[in-house]
């Protein structure tokens, strides 16, 4: 009898394990613990046993019963856990996150880098007059940038200066210098316009960031420092800068700034046209005539200014090969960018 019960326990264990659904398990429960089960039959037999054997038989029966019940309970928990499980590898619903235009991302990043070293962010207007866009910036009347080939003029009657769409963000420098007194330190992002035909690297509307600082002791080494800080924070701390003497009417001395090509690490590639350098911006010490035209004495104050094309920088940073992508607003394009 003891052996029989032992065998029963083993069979129950094997059978419960075989059960794959709760329904199968329920059927087995009936088989092993139900009214017609071996155990039920067995318990009916007990009264017919010799009195001396009865307690022993009863004990064995109860033990087998609770053992099998426990097995059933365990398997039931296992199976119900299994049945509530889902396939985590099943494909998700497609969801699209709304995105900022990458130009906004780059403008934000650049402005916040300069903000960390003390610059304030301000903006200007897009319709400007010749005085603010050219004259105050020491750009002579015969300068080619004043031609209708290079600047959009507007049909707005005016007595003094012709109105135009600003061809750079520099007029904002003039307005801020006129409005506020030194010490000054601003970055000014915004849209600018030039009548260039659209192609992979030209657009008649694009973005610039102008920056400038004026005080009694702001010098060329500070210009270099600010721009190195900017480039290393925007691109990578590995990036090297090269300042090449250049010419702009509104700065003196002037420089063009190249960064070491981070694609080929200076070895030369198609992006840097095998030179190892990528031009990113123009800068210099503000020309004394520009300070004077804003009512700031060049004898007492000096300062630097820089200007950069946002699209160019965004194209380098994200390795975008066509400027037109910024203005098409294709979801497949916008979807690729995010703040790091």
């Amino acid at each position: 009898m003891q052996e029989e019960l032992q065998k029963l326990k083993q069979t129950a264990e094997i059978d419960f394990r075989k059960a794959q659904t709760l329904e199968e398990l329920e059927a087995l429960k009936v088989k092993f613990l139900g009214r017609n089960s071996f155990l039920a039959q067995f318990s009916k037999k007990i009264p017919s046993l010799e009195p001396s054997l009865r307690p022993q038989a009863g004990r064995l029966l109860n033990e087998a019963k609770s053992f099998i019940t426990a097995l059933w309970q365990e398997r039931k928990e296992e199976l119900s856990l299994q049945q509530n499980k889902i396939d985590l590898t099943f494909p998700s619903y497609s969801l699209r996150k709304a995105k900022l235009n990458p130009l906004t991302l780059v403008i934000r990043e650049i402005c916040s880098i300069f903000e960390r070293i003390g610059f304030e962010i301000q903006e200007g207007r897009e319709i400007e007059d010749e005085w603010h866009n050219f004259t105050a910036l020491n750009i002579p009347l015969e300068h080619p940038s004043r031609d209708a080939f290079d600047t959009f003029y507007l049909k707005i009657p005016s007595k003094k200066y012709k109105y135009l769409l600003r061809s750079h963000t520099s007029p904002s420098q003039i307005r801020l210098m006129k409005k506020r007194k030194p010490p000054l330190a601003f970055v000014v992002p915004g849209r600018v316009y030039r009548p260039d035909n659209m192609d992979a690297s030209h657009s008649f509307m694009f973005h610039q960031i102008e920056g400038f600082a004026v005080d009694k002791d702001i010098n060329f080494s500070h210009l270099k420092g600010a721009l190195v800080y900017f480039a290393q924070n925007l691109f990578s701390s590995e990036v090297k800068l090269r300042f090449r003497p250049h010419f702009f009417p509104f700065t003196e001395p002037s420089a063009e700034v190249d960064i070491s090509c981070f694609i080929c690490k200076g070895k030369g590639c198609s992006v840097c046209k095998k030179s190892g350098w990528l031009e990113i911006l123009g800068c210099g010490m503000i020309h004394p005539r520009v300070l004077s035209s804003c009512g700031i004495s060049p004898k007492r104050y000096q300062g630097f200014a820089f200007g950069m094309g946002v699209e160019r920088i965004a194209m380098l940073k994200y390795r975008i090969n066509d400027i037109r992508l910024f203005f098409e607003n294709d979801l497949r394009f916008l979807g690729q960018f995010y703040e790091v």
Binding site: C111, G118, I121, Q122, E123, P189, I218, A226, F243, P245
Partner: peptide, 24 residues
């Protein structure tokens, strides 16, 4: 040589009163 001019962060003094920023 521009490359021989050392780099330093500009000593910028911010004004106490800052204009509200439409940009922000």
């Amino acid at each position: 040589g521009y490359q021989n001019i050392k780099e330093a962060l500009p000593p910028i003094k911010r004004s106490l009163k800052e204009e509200a920023s439409f940009y922000k």
